[in-house]
Write a protein that binds this DNA or RNA. Sequence first.
DNA 1: TTGTATGCGTTATCAG
DNA 2: CTGATAACGCATACAA
Lengths: 351, 351
Amino acid sequence: MKINMPVRAMAKASPTRSKGPVTLEMVAQLAAVSPSTVSRILNGTAVVSALKKKAVDDAIAKLGFVPNPVARGLAGGRTLSIGVITQAIDSPFYGAALRGIEDELDPVGYSALFVSGHWNAAVEARCIDVLRSRRVDGIIVLTGRLTNQALKTCAKNVPVVVTGRTLKAPGLVALNFDNFVGGQLATRHLIELGHRQIAFISGDAEQPDGVERFRGYCAALDAANIAFDPALVVQGGFTEASGLLAVDRLLEARQRFTAIFAANDQMAFGAALALYRHSLRVPQDVSLVGFDDLLTSLHVIPPLTTVHQPAYELGRLAATAMLQLLAGIKPSLELPAPRLIERESSCRLRD
Amino acid sequence: MKINMPVRAMAKASPTRSKGPVTLEMVAQLAAVSPSTVSRILNGTAVVSALKKKAVDDAIAKLGFVPNPVARGLAGGRTLSIGVITQAIDSPFYGAALRGIEDELDPVGYSALFVSGHWNAAVEARCIDVLRSRRVDGIIVLTGRLTNQALKTCAKNVPVVVTGRTLKAPGLVALNFDNFVGGQLATRHLIELGHRQIAFISGDAEQPDGVERFRGYCAALDAANIAFDPALVVQGGFTEASGLLAVDRLLEARQRFTAIFAANDQMAFGAALALYRHSLRVPQDVSLVGFDDLLTSLHVIPPLTTVHQPAYELGRLAATAMLQLLAGIKPSLELPAPRLIERESSCRLRD
DNA sequence: TTGTATGCGTTATCAG
DNA sequence: CTGATAACGCATACAA
């Protein structure tokens, strides 16, 4: 007899069993109301009499009931989860943003589903598919390589918040940082210190952030009447190794420069190492400025002068915007302006 | 009329509508088989005739059907998602492990749900609740502060893989790295270079990893007949700032030392900065060895001698173990042995 | 081997 | 304001 019993029936047959999740139905039973009422109280969907509300609240507390997000997702379409497309789960820069997202989402009961796009549009597209199949309530895209069109299309089906670009579309909010001004700031700082031969290590060409920083560099030179010298700009790829290589190339070409502006901190680290290898001191022989203000930039030798980018804030704001989008209110948020952090890797050019 | 129609009925009423996810039922219809058959093919639950299988496969391809993980989770209890409790989503060390987990899980269709425990047992317990409420198929715990008992209890309900401790229990596999040997390796390296006054910067006391490394330090000293000097060990907290402070304290106390072993790389960075501030050169004046081998340790100045810890591998192995646990096969995996990476922050003691 | 019926835990619709 | 009742999309027990 027992053998032929379906396992599910068996589970139901033993109501005393402490295992097995507490369901909404059990709450309803204990509170002597209908499941719908419990659901309504849970979601604030409609007004219910204070009396029943109390009964239900008590039952919930007594049973330690916690709603099943999976069932919720199936029935209501809301999963209380937000998909986040980051480019590498272990990125030193975006890591802070992820933390910001987490910190913002957690208190309101949302979970973040992090997936990595690896700076590859095709992979990112797959990420979107995965996230959508998991019925996330919204998608936050941290920069990446998706086209604006792809993002707009996606936003037709699910709210989207994207960073690192300026874009307007229904159901979509874009959060951008002023990389142009940031690039100006860094370059102007070096100019003010008396430098005129300032090398620039770029990011890879496809990255709008990097090209904006480059434009800022050019603009600052121009404003100071310093002729732009193409021989002083060398292509990097946002990695430490590429920064190192860039300086090696500069040195091999016997370029003269008294300062370097690297399009991000990681390349600045690599550049510093290359200079060290060539017995050039920072900042006495070469001033160095980065971009991002990573956590480690404060503890590197020498502590790096850099343009602060509010990664953590960026994450929080992105999450806030998403929450507002979900709540139906039009988000209007702005990122803090770029800010130069003067530390010890840059100094006045000695005569 | 239309106004009073339930929205769901409306959706069903227009089969031509390109939107709306393709369901298993639609596949069944197109293939002229029952939904159960489609399900069976999808899950390999039972043998089906090759003929029908082909029909179904074709239908799936034609419709671009992708099963809904949410519904799957509700019906079958499997969500194809693995919860991962990391301590900080932006940890430079665990970040690599997260990537390893992701890389291993992704190809087999599993998603990782990352949550942060912040080195706090209570928070980690909450993480477990969240993950369980989301019906993850298994939980990977990256170190943290949960008690062994809590882990064992958790493992009764859901497969658990935990790193950073040695533990045996049903449904649980623990992956540990030999921090003791690692600590020996680092210390012995310095001893072999002629150092005898070797300072140790510890992690915080509650962290087993750190105390093991300390034990290794002591053992290596002992083996070389060097008297242990408590004045040479100073408490840190695994952060750059704490490493910096530790060296400051050592210097203020006018302790004599020719080398430092820091219990992790981040503290080593801080230590290096402190030495720099005091015009002590690494390695000429003080040799420095870290632990972890972070990505940045290679590009710091000077590149850091350290004990390599295979964080990425750790992640992959943890995920592999979880997959095996889920498949019902007993995992037996082992982490690579500790390995010293000699770089430029340590050198022979000059006479 | 295959189809039918049922249930997973919740939300949403509609009739009181 | 509240309670039936029908989905949500899929996996399973059972019958055939």
